[in-house]
Amino acid sequence: MRHILSLLLENEAGALSRVAGLFSARGYNIESLTVAPTEDPTLSRMTIVTNGSAEVMEQITKQLNKLVDVVKVFDLNEGRHLERELMLVKIRAENGAREEIKRTADIFRGRIVDVTDKTYTIELTGPRDKLDAFLEALDPLMILETVRTGASGIGRGDWIMRA
């Protein structure tokens, strides 16, 4: 099953490699991993999308907690949560196709952020499946380049994750 993990960790050199190294050493999957410093510059917030059985997820959580640089680990699947990912797509947009692409982008609440006479670059934010759906709605031959950040997640409501 797919799980989305939120981590707070010390914003120190090497902390990322400890987490990434743990996943590769123990054979756990990483679907995506995003990390950046928080409002407290000594802390980083990381979101890892992974998958595994309940037993594997228990081990992943325990092993992450064991890393000395990791302050907190929470499996967002345990509660209601939001998940967002940012995608930039460069699309071939010539002559007759331009209008259709613009309309499709609008339907998905995408924004055209860069234009040339042959291309559009579209910015799109949302949960993973929405970004997937947008790409599926396009003619694959038109897609020149995609960049995705991987998911960031946060709990819904009053629940907060602090050090």
Binding site: A13, G14, S17, R18, G21, A25, V68, D69
Partner: peptide, 14 residues
Amino acid sequence: TVGITRPCVKHNFL
């Protein structure tokens, strides 16, 4: 050193 030893130490520091 920190990279080579990372998987076989409890923790390491540079």
